[in-house]
C-alpha cells in the first residue's frame, strides 16, 4: 500500500477563509477535504495517512520557518508520495503548494506532485521543479483535477515511466518527451493551419523560446558629453560582499560608490557569482566591470563622465521576474540622476 501525505490550506480544510489564513501548520490523521476524492480515486492502491493543514498567510509570511515545519511533519510519516493542493487560481496557496512540493521532492527525495491553474503565480515559479498538473481556475474543477492528478501521482509513487506533458496532463516543464500522437504529423499540420487561417485558437507542439527582446534606444548624440553608468549581472562587489548577494538565484542587487576608484583590484573587489570560474574576475574585476577603461576614456575626454555608482547582481539562475524588478528600480535611479547611457556587462 502506497502511503500518501497531502498538504492543503485552511480554506480547503474547512477551517475558514481569509480570517483564518494566519494559522500555523498542523497535522491531522487520514484525509481531509479534497483528500476524500483522492482517496476514492486511489481505490486500494494508496492511502492518505495524514493531511497537513496550513494557513496561506502563515506559510507565505514565514516561508523558511513554515517550510521547515511542514518538511518535518512529512518526514515523520515517511510517505511514498506527497501531494500539495490542488490550488486552482489561489495565488498564495499556489506558491505554498509549489514551494513545499518542490522541497519534499528535492530535500526528502519523496515523489511529489501538485496542481494549479496555469496562470497561478506558483505555476511559473515551480512547474519546472516538480510535476504540476494543469487544473481549472476554481475549486469547481476539483473532479477534473483529481482525475488527472491521482493517476500521475500513483505512477510517480511506483517509479513508472512518466510520459509527455500532453499525455499525462502536467504543465510543460522544459523536458521534451516523445510520444505517439493519434494522427500523423502532416495531418496535424494541415489541421493547425486551418485553425490558424480561421483565426481560431491553436496549440503549437513546440513553443519557441521566449524572446523578450528590447528595441535598442537611438544612438547617444554626443558620447563625449554623456554620463555613462555601469550595470552588471556578473556579480562584481566590493571585497567581502557587504550586501550578501547570493551566488545564484539572487534576490537583490547592490549599489556601490566608485567615486575616485580608478581601477578594481584584487584587494578591493571580487565577484559573488557562483556560475563561472571566479579566478580571473577576482584577480581583476575590471574584466567584468570595466571601470579602468572608462576612467581612461573619461580622462581622454572620449566620454563625458562615469556615473558615481554602479549596480551589480548575480545573473546565475536568477528569476526573470526578479531581474525585471531590479532593472526597473535601477533604471529609475539612473534616469533621475541624468545618466545618458548604460553599459551592461554579463559574464
Amino acid at each position: 500500500m502506497i502511503k500518501v501525505v497531502q498538504y492543503i490550506n485552511q480554506f480547503f480544510a474547512n477551517v475558514g477563509g481569509e480570517e483564518m489564513a494566519h494559522i500555523p501548520a498542523e497535522i491531522r490523521e487520514g484525509h481531509v477535504g479534497p483528500g476524500l476524492a483522492f482517496q476514492q480515486a486511489f481505490k486500494d492502491e494508496a492511502e492518505i495517512v495524514a493531511t497537513i493543514v496550513c494557513g496561506d498567510s502563515y506559510f507565505n509570511e514565514n516561508l523558511d520557518k513554515a517550510k521547515a515545519e511542514v518538511l518535518a511533519m512529512v518526514k515523520q510519516y515517511n510517505p511514498d508520495l506527497f501531494i500539495a493542493g490542488p490550488a486552482f487560481n489561489a495565488g498564495r496557496y499556489g506558491v505554498a503548494c509549489g514551494t513545499i512540493a518542490a522541497a519534499v521532492k528535492e530535500e526528502l527525495g519523496i515523489p511529489s506532485i501538485t496542481g494549479m491553474y496555469k496562470e497561478n503565480p506558483g505555476a511559473d515559479m515551480f512547474k519546472n521543479k516538480v510535476y504540476m498538473v494543469s487544473t481549472k481556475n476554481s475549486a469547481a474543477g476539483m473532479r477534473d483535477a483529481v482525475k488527472k492528478m491521482a493517476p500521475l501521482a500513483l505512477k510517480l509513487a511506483k517509479g513508472e515511466k512518466i510520459g509527455s506533458s500532453a499525455e499525462e496532463g502536467y504543465m510543460p516543464n522544459g523536458i521534451r518527451v516523445n510520444f505517439f500522437e493519434k494522427e500523423r504529423g502532416s495531418k496535424r499540420a494541415v489541421g493547425m493551419l486551418l485553425k490558424k487561417l480561421a483565426g481560431k485558437e491553436f496549440e503549437t507542439e513546440f513553443p519557441m523560446p521566449d524572446f523578450d527582446r528590447v528595441d535598442p534606444n537611438p544612438a547617444v548624440k554626443d558620447i563625449t558629453k554623456a554620463k555613462i553608468a555601469l550595470v552588471t549581472s556578473g556579480g562584481i562587489v566590493p571585497k567581502g560582499n557587504p550586501d550578501h548577494i547570493e551566488s545564484s538565484s539572487a534576490s537583490k542587487y547592490g549599489e556601490y560608490d566608485i567615486e575616485g576608484v580608478m581601477d578594481l583590484t584584487e584587494e578591493t573587489f571580487e565577484t559573488a557569482h557562483g556560475g563561472y570560474d571566479p579566478i580571473y574576475a577576482n584577480a581583476d574585476s575590471d574584466r567584468v566591470l570595466p571601470v579602468d577603461i572608462l576612467r581612461d576614456l573619461e580622462k581622454e575626454g572620449k566620454i563625458g563622465s562615469l556615473y558615481r555608482y554602479y549596480y551589480s547582481t548575480v545573473g546565475n539562475g536568477t528569476a526573470v521576474k526578479s531581474a525585471k524588478a531590479f532593472a526597473a528600480e535601477i533604471g529609475k535611479k539612473l534616469k533621475a540622476d541624468g545618466v545618458d547611457a548604460v553599459i551592461l556587462t554579463s559574464t
Partner: peptide, 9 residues
C-alpha cells in the same frame, strides 16, 4: 514531412 505519428511535448 510529418510522415509519422511520433511527436514530443
Amino acid at each position: 514531412m510529418g510522415f509519422n505519428k511520433l511527436s514530443a511535448r
